[in-house]
Amino acid sequence: MADATSDRSGPLIELRRVTKVYGRGDAAVHALAGVDLRIEQGEFVAVMGPSGSGKSTAMNILGCLDTPSSGSYRFRGVAVETLGRDQRALLRRRDLGFVFQGFNLLNRTSALENVELPLIYRRTPRAERHALAQRALALVGLNGREGHTPGELSGGQQQRVAIARAIVTDPHLLLADEPTGNLDSVRSHEIMTLLGGLNRDRGITILMVTHEPEMAAYAHRVVHFLDGRVVDESAPEQRS
């Protein structure tokens, strides 16, 4: 980002005592109860924790889809909690890529067009858009499948399309919420290899939620969540 407030020397992400409360009064749910987290440029971090521990809530805040109830979130030095809806959309458009458990591709729309979608909102000229999308699809190993719609692709292939869509804009941060949750073990390892490669070769910072220690093992660092808090940061268990 070209903002005067952006600070390229500091950490990519810095959460300070971030809370998120849903509802109010007796019915209030403290999805996040004061999270502190720092992630440096170029890291590959896995987030683990039991269901309902606030992982997705944290990912939504980190992805600027949601705002914290209190606390501060700095993304490349920018105080995200002060940004409006449109400014956050612009930040997502420029700097972030998302991969979801459910793939979330546009149905009845070709793989190529799905990957082109973020570029359309970036006003990338048509020819360049095509070229970039083709390149991203090639990178995730889907050459020759550009014209296929999600319905004509396997789950693993759909997730590759989703990854291509997330990286086609060259984001600083790739957020993946249980990217292998819907895939079998073989496909899961393929996807993890792909993510690891993107992190290593293209320097994309990756933050990934997963249940499986096997998948977390691809990361440099694991952050454990419990009841809306970060309880432990550790190196991943060694891959066997």
Binding site: D86, R92, N104, L106
Partner: peptide
């Protein structure tokens, strides 16, 4: 709705 969610998530503005 889902399509709209996808578009918003990848950075579509409200007015777009």
């Amino acid at each position: 709705t889902r399509e709209i969610g996808i578009r918003l998530a990848i950075g579509a503005l409200e007015r777009e």
